[in-house]
Amino acid sequence: MTTVDSRSGRRLTARGEKTRAKIVAAAADLIYVQGVGATTLDDVLMASGVSKSQLYHHFAGKDELVRAVIDHVGERIIERERDALGHVSTIPGLRRWRDALVQNNALRHGAYGCALGSLASEVSDQDDAARRAVSQLFIEWQGLLAGVLRRLQDGGALPPEASIDQLATGLMGAVQGGYMLAQTARDVTPMATSIDMALAHIESLSTD
């Protein structure tokens, strides 16, 4: 696979690609732990071990690097969620998805929240291109949730009059809010509770 450098428009050599990936991975880790605002290009240089000229060869500045991090994080999360939700068509299946999310976050006592959700709160009033990119990723994620709910409805587990998009939007909010409460409390419990309550409501709509 060859990547076209966003800055120069040139195709990257294998080595250039590796350097770029190293910079983006280091920046993504730093941003996950300390946020966009607190992460400087010097931090990224130090963490990735690349030279300043290498970094500026690939990225004009911080905004461009942040956008590459959004793509990187987004790709990872959408892939994870597609694997986890793509074939779910039952309430127990939805609960297993919830268990995996909570378990993953419990490993860090909820410390860092959702990588995509944290980006959302930071880029919203900073950089409009970044905001739109993150927003698009959330539309994709929510689409996967809506797909599950639609399959539940097709299978008769949800009444035909249930508004799937409204429920998927509400569930996404409960998931993200749960992550944020867990992050503040340094405890995964509020996240588990929030998703459980949202799923319980969805289950209560069940026709039987």
Binding site: A120, S121, S124, A174, Q176, P190
Partner: peptide, 15 residues
């Protein structure tokens, strides 16, 4: 859940 909905919902609305 109400607090999470406020928190997550407002972040996503802003986004």
């Amino acid at each position: 859940l109400i607090l999470a909905a406020l928190h997550g919902g407002s972040t996503l609305s802003q986004l």
